[in-house]
Design a binder for these strands. Structure first.
Lengths: 329, 329
DNA sequence: GCGGGTCCTGCAAACGTTGGTCAGAAGTTA
DNA sequence: TAACTTCTGACCAACGTTTGCAGGACCCGC
């Protein structure tokens, strides 16, 4: 309590407040006395009272479908890191499922706080819906996987379309006739890695196989791998993420098709285990931690200056390791 | 603002407050009018004002060394899930390094909020320091990896000592003469998986090799694997976590020692990729998500009833897959 | 030594809720 | 129909801070 400090220091409450906020000059003599009293009492300002009167908010909420999967967790880490450096607290709310009540629940919880702003991790279609259900008055920045044209809310994104294109061109460049694709669920139809893969094939004038739709998990990659293994024409596979890639590779090797000698496999994300796989996984590295930092940076600037930030993009990078090779002739 | 709602509904501010808090009965007629006004205006109570006057807090902070590594992220997920269900918001603060200023920074940020309580993820030695620097007045529960005797603060833990013991006995039971161990950094000397491994060897009356000390990462497992591979007497290795295990396996196979035919490897944690490895990894599964839920449950009960909770424990479970086998005769 | 200016300090009013107290209305019983 | 009980609704203080305003102390130059 400010009044206890004031009493111990023998000054008025407002002087203590001024010393602590630092906005108004206070004479060195009183300042020292106040600081001594503060540390003697171990005083901590009451956050509720502060935001009530000053309107200053210093927590930002993160809404995400998941916090465990690598991309989400890494983005969250980046956000937290940047927020902590800037003196903001970050709170999290996961949107459990597609069910409207789960969305409402998460949004309610988030809005029940006194927020400076919010970040939604828009790596999936639920993210898009989440973004829409937040009030317009709240500054919200989205951290997105795929590039998209500027919309009502600012986005920081990873240009995974460019990544998909690059990886596909790389496989084609190795001499493969075409590239198969095991896709993660996509946010919107014409964006993302799948679209990049498609464009690369088209601009190379090459036959485009059907997309094998999967989820995010290795199991689902394994299923896909089984159907791929059954088709002798398959020599190169681009997977929507690294988990899918290891599932695919597992199925392939179990069916006696060697990677990369008979089939090349490329992943996406460059999760920590990717380089430890056997063979070490060639994959498209996405810097999620940096995405998180950037997203928070945009939000903080918005909140502090009042200027709505521009979208920001970063290009993923192909990391060549050993799971892809030229086809056997 | 409550007054806007009151005006629109044609009632007094306190009536609106009564309707919203629900503590005092209000006639159905007015209640409906108020609720209509609330939804028309999209009114949300001001959280700062509420906690200021009522003293009710509904955010819990989580302090952790890391949020990306599997065990931490999964624990966090469990905490968040339970908290959301109970209507609490969770905020996170990572303690970046051993440096005191990083600890202070995180603790300051956490304490700058109006907290109901806090949880520290005590999987490492920094966790125990964090626990110590939180004020005694704040309800704090620790989520710990290793069993420990009851201390000043309540703990929820995973009994990884039992897990380490079981895994070691399993390898011995397969016929291995002894079991080598690649250890993660430990919180305290006589606890955890390493201690379990040691006890299992001792009670089997078997020679105990030196511990190979590693960090948490595959690279460090790889280093360890290299020294293990050079020693022909090594036939079974228990690793402190799954990342270490894959690093070890990679080094082993690179050096021409086949897993599990020549060397058996067992991991710890059962991360999602473990069952997709080749060979699928035999490992000690720890339910971190459940640990998180339990920890939050303890904290919530404490906060709500005022009774300090008892420690709670869960035993990990050995998941037998294909990376361990009887030694060649 | 005095007027004018510069700093500093303290008083008091907010910020948006909650919840206790009290008055008045409605319902019930004799 | 009067008196009594039981609710319902209005008013107001309080929560712990920040900050505009005004007055007090001190310093400088004339």
């Amino acid at each position: 309590m400010l009044s206890d400090v004031a009493q111990l220091a023998g000054v008025s409450i407002s002087t203590v407040s001024r010393v602590l906020t630092g906005r108004t000059p206070v004479s060195p003599r009183l300042r020292d006395k106040v600081q001594a009293a503060v540390s003697e009492l171990g005083y901590r300002p009451n956050a509720a009272a502060q935001t009530l009167v000053s309107g200053r908010r210093s927590t930002v909420a993160v809404l995400a479908r998941n916090t465990l999967r690598y991309g989400y967790a890494a983005t969250l880490q980046g956000i937290e890191e940047a927020a902590r450096a800037a003196g903001y607290v970050v709170s999290i709310a996961v949107v459990e499922s597609e069910a409207p009540r789960d969305l409402d629940r998460a949004v309610d919880l988030v809005l029940s706080q006194s927020l400076a702003g919010a970040i939604v991790v828009e790596f999936d279609s639920l993210g898009v819906r989440t973004l829409e259900s937040l009030p317009d008055a709240l500054p919200v920045v989205a951290a997105a996987g795929a590039r998209r044209r500027p919309g009502p809310r600012p986005h920081a994104f990873l240009d995974d379309q460019a990544g998909g294109e690059e990886a596909t061109r790389y496989l084609l460049g190795l001499g493969h006739r075409t590239v198969h694709h095991v896709a993660i669920p996509s946010t919107r139809p014409r964006s993302g890695r799948t679209w990049g893969w498609r464009r690369a094939l088209e601009s190379a004038g090459v036959e485009r196989p059907d997309v094998i739709q999967a989820s995010y998990d290795p199991d689902s990659g394994y299923e896909a791998g089984l159907v791929l293994a059954a088709d002798p024409a398959v020599t190169a596979v681009l997977c929507g993420n690294d988990e899918l890639a290891i599932g695919v590779m597992r199925a392939l090797t179990e069916q006696g098709r060697r990677v990369p000698e008979e089939v090349s496999v490329v992943g996406f994300d460059d999760q920590p285990f990717a380089r430890m796989w056997s063979p070490p996984l060639t994959t498209v590295a996405q810097d999620f931690v940096d995405l998180g930092r950037r997203t928070f940076g945009m939000l903080a600037r918005w909140v502090e200056t009042g200027e709505r930030p521009e979208d920001s993009a970063a290009k993923p990078e192909l990391v060549v390791r050993e799971s892809a090779a030229p086809p056997r002739v």
